[in-house]
Design a protein around this nucleic acid. Structure first.
Lengths: 145, 145
DNA sequence: ACTTGAGTTCAAGCGCACTTGAACTTGCAG
DNA sequence: CTGCAAGTTCAAGTGCGCTTGAACTCAAGT
């Protein structure tokens, strides 16, 4: 039978992530490995799923620290079940929904606001729809906060 | 009458961007200033619009280099017209549309794919809908490429 | 047994986007 | 005219997310 675990090279090949990055992730506590008698890393197949998750989260602009925090919620001792991943997925979903909404607002604002030449942030209703926001200080709070 | 131009402190206050960052943007060619007889920077009001544009573009993950390239298309000599900004806006809009679509795909995939436990990228139809993609090598190409 | 590719650690380096500090000059309010 | 906040330059530092290099060991085919 084939090996039940993956070498770092295999995990790298399957995930598309450089070995150096995988070591880095491990150092930062995002993934885990066991060692052979010769001190080489061996990865459970489940780590592949973690790595994928990391890359996807990064793609949408989440920092490694936040990703690590999210992954911490997966059980340490046992292999995460489908339910564990589903729970994590649900959390990310709301994050994604927020980010998507932000982007859509951004897009619509670009059309309406840059287009109309009011991007000075001074009196644009799209940027500062309420006086409450203006009172919080300068900057595009509504969109960038 | 009030000053027609802005000092770096005023531009900073109005844009919410630190003076050091504004100098940095200028060094990189993203914004421009004139100088007083005493060598202090003075900004046209239109620069505020540029700064806002920069921050918005950054927010959606565009590098300063790409932002600079986009801003290069604005006329150097004259103050950009509404039409100039509209043209730029249109370009960013398609970028944004792409990114939004990517995120939505990501979100839906997380629901369907992590949820089902197939995030190993090995045989998931959501990740690799066609064999052509699989043939391009490892990694989550469809989503991350 | 020998070679060779893959793995190991550790320190240093890199690219991006700024920030900070030192040393100095300007400009406006009283 | 003076005082002091706000401006200036330049070099160096920061945080993130890795990569690279040196020096070494391990594992597997012939």
């Amino acid at each position: 039978m084939k090996t039940a675990t993956l070498t770092i090279g295999e995990l790298s090949a399957r995930s598309g992530v450089a070995p150096s990055a995988l070591r880095f992730y491990e150092e930062r506590g995002l993934i885990h490995s066991t060692r052979t008698s010769g001190n080489q890393r061996r990865y459970e197949r489940g780590e592949l799923r973690r790595v994928s998750f990391i890359r996807i989260a990064q793609q949408v602009g989440v920092s490694l620290e936040r990703i690590r925090d999210a992954l911490k919620e997966l059980p340490e001792g046992r292999t995460p079940t489908k339910a564990d991943w589903t729970r994590l997925s649900a959390r990310w979903r709301s994050d994604l929904d927020e980010r998507i909404a932000l982007m859509q607002r951004l897009r619509d604002t670009l059309d309406g606001c840059i287009g109309c030449g009011c991007l000075s942030l001074q009196s644009c209703r799209l940027y500062n729809p309420g006086d409450d926001l203006a009172a919080q200080g300068p900057g595009p709070r509504k969109l960038l906060g």
